[in-house]
Design a binder for these strands. Structure first.
Ligand SMILES: [Mn+2]
Ligand SMILES: [Mn+2]
Ligand SMILES: [Zn+2]
Ligand SMILES: [Zn+2]
Lengths: 152, 152
DNA sequence: TTTGATATTGAGACTAAATATCATATAAGG
DNA sequence: CCTTATATGATATTTAGTCTCAATATCAAA
């Protein structure tokens, strides 16, 4: 079962509601992980998340990080962004606009872009197919100005 | 190094050019894998690809399938679509329009959609950021009409 | 506040996707 | 043809992610 998130003011409240609504318990481990996930505003992976939790002395085992991250994805507070270097990368999305990633196939640089037109397309497709849209992600692959020149 | 694919008539020719241009060899294994990848017009994963190659008596080891698939992704004939059930899923994209996937968070059903407006957004962002666009993918997550009703 | 049913945690075992290794085979240019 | 650098395939290895289960903590109901 999944929470409609747009009623809540912040991620912690939304997550609490999601847990309770689904008969799960609010634990310090889950709250610590959530907090750390929302403290990081860039893409992150599980190893990095675990490191940051350790550094800050927050408790939670590797297993709990994986388990909680799955809940955060299920509740649409977090989304998988891309799979790279043998593991998944994530970002928190609660309260953020749909946005787009431009990735260079040459140098692997990634730019995040907010685009009005993209939001419209997503909304339009949601309407057309009668979907209740929770999140969307667009990835564009190509060559950045630099790599484009090198490649002549 | 990456090939500009739009000059070529078909995937096989484009792949040959990519290989030769990068000092690699055209082998029956690589051609068999390419052929099978382009014979499948739905999303596929590595296990399925290996099975279909075996069934058709085409040679190529598991290792070669992984290695060749990496080359096909590098040459932008194929793209990673999503990571699910513990492994990556792919689709061939050479000669196809940019398209969109609508995925239901309730029942996991995925619909592929061609959308004019999406192509425009991708092209527009390419122009704006001076990117040479090779491919793009949009994934929209939400609830399909069915699951939307069930969720009240 | 205490209790008890039940969900959660954590350490480590386990699984399987993906990669690395390396001896053998083969493409392709001379 | 040869030659040689590249590719293949069998299999060992790595490691992201999951599973297990005893110990612990939550939380609702006494
Ligand atoms: Mn943020
Ligand atoms: Mn096709
Ligand atoms: Zn670049
Ligand atoms: Zn559905």
């Amino acid at each position: 079962m999944i929470l409609r998130i747009y009623r809540y003011k912040n991620g912690l409240e939304a997550f609490r509601e999601f847990l309770i609504h689904n008969g799960m318990r609010v634990t310090p481990e889950r709250e610590a992980i959530l907090e750390e996930v929302f403290a990081e505003h860039e893409h992150f992976d599980v190893e990095g998340l675990i490191m940051r939790l350790r550094q800050k002395g927050k408790r939670s085992s590797r297993a709990s990080v994986y388990r909680t991250l799955a809940l955060l994805v299920e509740s649409s507070l977090v989304q998988e962004v891309f799979y790279k270097d043998g593991h998944m990368h994530y970002e928190h999305i609660y309260g953020h606009e749909h946005h787009c990633h431009l990735r260079c196939l040459g140098c692997n640089k990634t730019i995040a872009i907010l685009d009005e037109a993209l939001a419209d397309v997503i909304e339009g497709l949601g309407m057309e197919y009668n979907f209740e849209v929770i999140s969307g992600r667009l990835e564009i692959f190509g060559f950045c100005p630099n790599c484009r020149d090198k490649n002549q």
